[in-house]
Design a protein around this nucleic acid. Structure first.
Lengths: 216, 216
DNA sequence: GTCTATACCCAGATAGAC
DNA sequence: GTCTATCTGGGTATAGAC
């Protein structure tokens, strides 16, 4: 059930088979979905034979869990760097939205797997770990919203519900951004940040004359 | 490739096999995902043998396409009844949000299939039809947002982007509402409507302190 | 229309030589 | 660690009796 080896890097010939498997599996799962990809497909893309995958991963499920968990670990680590733990909820919300959108634009394959293939991940220890990591991520946003609500800055009915709603909204980016976005990265980010900030009742962008919003 | 018969209702013994197949397939696809459900599973749930399904559907793909298209047809018909074609964009946006949330709470299985199993639907005539119906639905919302933006009532950067974002947000309901919602139907609807209305820069609920763009 | 039986294929995983 | 070869099981779809 578990990963065979966690530390392998390049072998004598300078090729890192384990990394190649992960990379190709990620791309194929994201493109076709877990169920539609065979171990033979992955092996071929990685330049090896099917049986050799089992020298690096215990099975297809192990491979999927490995991809999800390593993605979520990186996501959470990057989140901590990008969003301050305390301070003005408005600034933290802006930072969160900006970070989330940027990350999804940069790593659409990782993200789409962690979102769409949850049902493909069989229950068990790894599955619980994945869910726990996802909950931690959503919890960061929920805390920001709750802080804003409690101090009267945000107009939000329920921090947990809204956290789920906003994450769903921003994650939907991957659905349409994959096929040739007509918008620049900055424009997309600005749009989503504006929607998020307005959704908690803020006037956005800031500095629009004493409380009243007008289109620019 | 096509459906065998479109009009069958109950047979002599009062049993409608075709409807039973559709009903069970819908529930199973929604629960486990298309790829994880076999024709044998569906047949067993419907109380027949596996081969008998092919008297009603040309294959598994045909069954999936049938479920998606009939769902989208019903969704669009209900949308037309619930949301007026013209008039105040604010009222139409409120009606759209309220309708969408209510429909997703009522028919989570239909909705989750049409959203999550798009990748399982092979390209072709039926696939194109599904995408066209989905585009029509999103187009209704985009038109509302554009009307509001043009007349200066909504603060929205890009009607098409925001339409996609709001639909993704509201559709995410199915993810968490399936396991014992702690909120009443009315509370969930009110929360989401509020988030949608605020996300276009409106003060919501109406009648909160004068001076800002609450427009009638 | 439904049944039983089966053709046919492809999946994930394993064994053992090198 | 990788290869070839194979085991084992499951899938969709079809054939033909009733």
């Amino acid at each position: 059930m578990d990963t065979i080896a966690d530390t392998s890097r390049t072998d004598k010939r300078g090729r890192d088979t384990r990394s190649a498997i992960r990379k190709q599996a990620l791309a194929l799962f994201a493109e076709r979905g877990y169920g539609a990809v065979s171990m033979r497909d992955i092996a071929e893309a990685a330049g090896i034979r099917q049986g050799a995958i089992y020298n690096h991963f215990a099975g297809k499920q192990d491979l999927l869990a490995d991809l999800m968990i390593s993605h979520l670990d990186r996501l959470l680590a990057a989140l901590v760097r990008a969003v301050p733990a305390g301070g003005d909820p408005m600034r933290r919300l802006e930072a969160f939205a900006s970070f989330h959108v940027g990350y999804h634009l940069d790593q659409p394959d990782d993200v789409v797997i962690a979102d769409m293939e949850l049902r493909s991940l069989e229950a068990g220890r790894r599955g619980a770990e994945v869910h726990a990591l996802r909950d931690r991520y959503a919890g960061v946003l929920a805390t920001i919203l709750e802080d804003g609500r409690r101090t009267g800055r945000f107009q939000t009915p329920n921090a947990k519900v809204q956290a789920g709603a906003l994450i769903a909204m921003m994650t939907g980016i991957t659905v349409w951004s994959r096929d040739g976005a007509a918008l620049t990265r900055e424009a997309v980010t600005a749009h989503y940040v504006q929607m998020v900030m307005q959704s908690v009742g803020l006037i956005w962008p800031l500095g629009e004359e004493a409380g009243c919003s007008t289109a620019q």
